[in-house]
Design a protein around this nucleic acid. Sequence first.
DNA 1: ATGAAAGCGCTAACAC
DNA 2: GTGTTAGCGCTTTCAT
Lengths: 342, 342
Amino acid sequence: MTTGDRPSSAPTMGDVAHRAGVSQMTVSNVVNGRTARVGAATRARVLAAIEELGYRVNVSASRLRSGRTGVVALAVPDFSLAYYAEFAERLAVRFAEAGLRLVLEHTAGRRESELATVERGHLDQYDGLALVLAAGDAEEVARRHPGRPVVIVGEREVSSSLDHVVMDNVGGARAATEYLLSTGARRIAVLGAQPGGPVSMASLRTRGYLEAIAAAGVAPDARLLVGGGVGFDDGARSAAALIAEGAIPEALLALTDETALGALHTLAAAGIDVPGRVQVVGWDGTRAGRFATPALTTVDPDNDAIADAVVRLLARRIHADGPVPREIVMPAARLVRRGTTL
Amino acid sequence: MTTGDRPSSAPTMGDVAHRAGVSQMTVSNVVNGRTARVGAATRARVLAAIEELGYRVNVSASRLRSGRTGVVALAVPDFSLAYYAEFAERLAVRFAEAGLRLVLEHTAGRRESELATVERGHLDQYDGLALVLAAGDAEEVARRHPGRPVVIVGEREVSSSLDHVVMDNVGGARAATEYLLSTGARRIAVLGAQPGGPVSMASLRTRGYLEAIAAAGVAPDARLLVGGGVGFDDGARSAAALIAEGAIPEALLALTDETALGALHTLAAAGIDVPGRVQVVGWDGTRAGRFATPALTTVDPDNDAIADAVVRLLARRIHADGPVPREIVMPAARLVRRGTTL
DNA sequence: ATGAAAGCGCTAACAC
DNA sequence: GTGTTAGCGCTTTCAT
């Protein structure tokens, strides 16, 4: 009523133009900060009209016409896993500094959902996408020829045409295992293990472990490769199973911090001394691990370097004029020794 | 080249229509599952054309025209706080069951960012929004008259026109404090406290605590109200400060699980027995608390009920024809007793 | 420095 | 059951 002739629906750029007595194009120029093309007085008038009408640009319309959005997406398998959550926060802060907004999408760790995020019609909503690949295959993603910059955050280097930030899964597992061996441990269990099978976080970390014990001349023992998930409950369950078997290992390499924390819980309940009787190593460098009791020794994937790389790789493509050479980055994982190891 | 006359850019609905020898509207009907309006044979031909061209609907265009999007957003202050992360995951699963996709937005806990999420042009991207209000005011949000369903997830009931899912902050703090008093504790510290000041999570929980001790005839002691943030570090620091003062309280009411876990870390390092010497209560019911050692007693806000309410309130408005009466829901918080209390 | 025209890709509304 | 028309709100392009 009070805003003119479009009583109930939102004011458009046309409404603002009308009120300011200028063309719609001038409003667009003001809104988009193309100050060179608008006189100061005109600009002031337009700004006043925007204020009076409470006008906001319609993102969908702007996006449809220009293709640009100012928004990037991060697609993760699960919002609640501490590792992804902390990674997302790191990215959000960095992208904000780069003038881009970050939104999170959810893939439920399903291959088809992961692929859906790079379909054109979907990806068109964003200037770029960082895709954490848990189930799917990077080559399959690349085959969809996404029309926008995509960075794969993944488990292994892969021969696709996409930029790739690779986790140092094999190297990290090897480093952790080597350290445990150096303390004298020989019977080292892996919680969340997946020997063989399709390439995945679990299979690669398991491989690094197997390589390290082989190099040290320690024979693998299938009973020490405890499968299952990598959540808190899985860790607790796996530790309980190991205890029930009677032959408690000298060390546990848990494939995530949450698995390690779950195992720690079970060990404490059973009165088993950590690290005296059993050493425990986690993976991810999460805050929860740092504040556990004892503080959790963990494989730090170098999350800052990973986040930096994702932002850099995406930003350079978003702002590029021509083609950009493909790049692969693999920050080195390193063991952070704290209280759960000797 | 192989797909016809639009070599490099993405195929449109028009391309599909052309190839299938039907009108664009028929393609739209097929894509949107309006099967009643399309013959089986036609449908098959359209589907084939879609497959051959690798066509995907452009979400932005569809959104602009129809207004509908099939996507809802949850705006949180911080992706990495376990409470929000776990809450987001709960919502994502529930919305998926309701046929809606959930994306996460980031407000950095800043009032202006919170308000920006409900601006028309921004909100138009979504069918609805759940907004976790940390800094801003619900009445201010309501004054923007968001053009789409918005549910406020907030600290207190408020006289706005928006649906509201309210945390039982005062009640939860009272219940936790009453329990601690019942165990004989008299000197109970609050970590993350904020006595007085603007209404916030911290001030309301502090109020509940003060009400409970007043009712028990225990005099408040300013030295027991330890301010600061509610992260791991804050909890660790606050506990250290309390220890340094020499007069260690009989119990700590930490305003989040992360604060409690931080405090637990410090207490363990100082060799102080929990719960024998000091009891500790957290707040949020996170998984990390459940698997701490000892397992953390916590105020459970009833996150399932909160998530159910958010989905229900948003869905009923999204699918409503006419106006919908405003609703306020406040699930009761309850104390979950575990190992850090007597 | 400003404006007019065209159209991004899609769907609502109606005609047949 | 299928087609035609119009237009969502914006920005591109080109004219002045």
